[in-house]
C-alpha cells in the first residue's frame, strides 16, 4: 500500500523583502503573479510504500524541511497533489508546544493532547514517557529550569511514544548525551522493525545507511535522485566533494 504519494508537487513561497504593505496584499487578492516568489520544491514525484524507511538528503535550503511540512500537511502544496494514508508523528522541532512556565508533568499532558493522544492514552503512557526521559526528579519543576538537553529529552520521549504509523524525523537525533542518543536511535530502529514507515532527514551518513533502505536527494527543490541509500549517498557525497573545484 502506498502511504505517501507526491504527484507533480511544487511549493512556492513569497520572498519577504522587507515590510509587506497593503499594496502587496491587494496585488495578491487581484491575483497578480508574484515575480519574486521562490520555489522551495519544483515538480517533485515519488511514492513511499507501507513499511519503507526513506532518507531525505540534500544541502541546506534544498527543500527537505518543506517536503516534510507537506507530508505532515502543515502547509498545502502550491501545485500538484499530496496523498497521505496513516497517522503521522513528526519530530520536526522538538518541544514545539512546550511552555517554559509549565512543569514537566503539565507539558507532557499538553504536548500529548496536541499530538493527538486521548485523555486515557495520555494517562496510560505518562509513566512510560517519564521513564524513557529519566527525568523523574525534575518532573514537577517548571520547564524554564530545565537545561536544553533535558528539555529535548522530554520532548523526544513524548513524541516517540505516540505509536505512529508514519514517523518523520528532522535532524533531531542529536538529543542529549551519548547514552541517551543511543537510546533514541534504538527506539527509532525498534519503530522501524515494527514495520512502520519512516521518513528521515539527517546529515549523519552512516546512520542513514543503516536505518533507511532508500534515499531521496533534493537539490534546489528538485528531486535529482531516488534509489538505494548507499548509491544515493555515494553520488551525493561525490558531488559535494567535487563542489569546490567546479
Amino acid at each position: 500500500m502506498t502511504v505517501i504519494e507526491f504527484k507533480n508537487v511544487s511549493k512556492a513561497f513569497h520572498r519577504a523583502v522587507g515590510q509587506r504593505l497593503l499594496r502587496h496584499y491587494l496585488e495578491d487578492l487581484l491575483g497578480k503573479s508574484d515575480p519574486d516568489s521562490f520555489h522551495a520544491l519544483k515538480n517533485v514525484n515519488f511514492a513511499i510504500n507501507d513499511g519503507e524507511s526513506v532518507a531525505v538528503i540534500g544541502a541546506n535550503g534544498a527543500g527537505k524541511s518543506t517536503l516534510l511540512s507537506l507530508v505532515t500537511r502543515l502547509a498545502p502544496p502550491s501545485a500538484g497533489q499530496v496523498t497521505i494514508n496513516g497517522r503521522v508523528a513528526a519530530l520536526l522541532e522538538l518541544g514545539a508546544g512546550f511552555h517554559p512556565d509549565l512543569t514537566g508533568r503539565e507539558n507532557i499532558r499538553l504536548n500529548a493532547s496536541l499530538l493527538g493522544f486521548s485523555r486515557k492514552q495520555a494517562g496510560d503512557l505518562y509513566e512510560t514517557i517519564v521513564d524513557f526521559s529519566e527525568l523523574h526528579d525534575f518532573i514537577d519543576e517548571p520547564l524554564r529550569t530545565y537545561s536544553n538537553g533535558m528539555m529535548l529529552r522530554l520532548a523526544f520521549s513524548v513524541a516517540v511514544n505516540l505509536d505512529p504509523e508514519i514517523l518523520i524525523i528532522d535532524e533531531v537525533l542529536a538529543v542529549g548525551d551519548q547514552q541517551f542518543q543511543t537510546k533514541c536511535i534504538d527506539k527509532i530502529f525498534e519503530i522501524r522493525n515494527q514495520g512502520k514507515t519512516i521518513l528521515c532527514v539527517s546529515h549523519v551518513g552512516p546512520l542513514l545507511e543503516s536505518l533507511c533502505t532508500r534515499a531521496l536527494w533534493l537539490d534546489h527543490g528538485q528531486l535529482v535522485m531516488d534509489g538505494p541509500t548507499h548509491e544515493v549517498l555515494q553520488a551525493y557525497e561525490g558531488r559535494t566533494l567535487h563542489a569546490p573545484s567546479e
Binding site: R87, H99, E106, R109, L110, S113, S118, R119
Partner: peptide, 20 residues
C-alpha cells in the same frame, strides 16, 4: 491529519492559558 481528542486538547489549552 490530526484525529485526536478535541475535548482533551481544548481542556489542556484552556488550563495552560489560565495557569500561565
Amino acid at each position: 491529519l490530526w484525529n485526536g481528542d478535541y475535548l482533551f486538547l481544548l481542556e489542556n489549552l484552556i488550563v495552560k492559558d489560565f495557569k500561565i
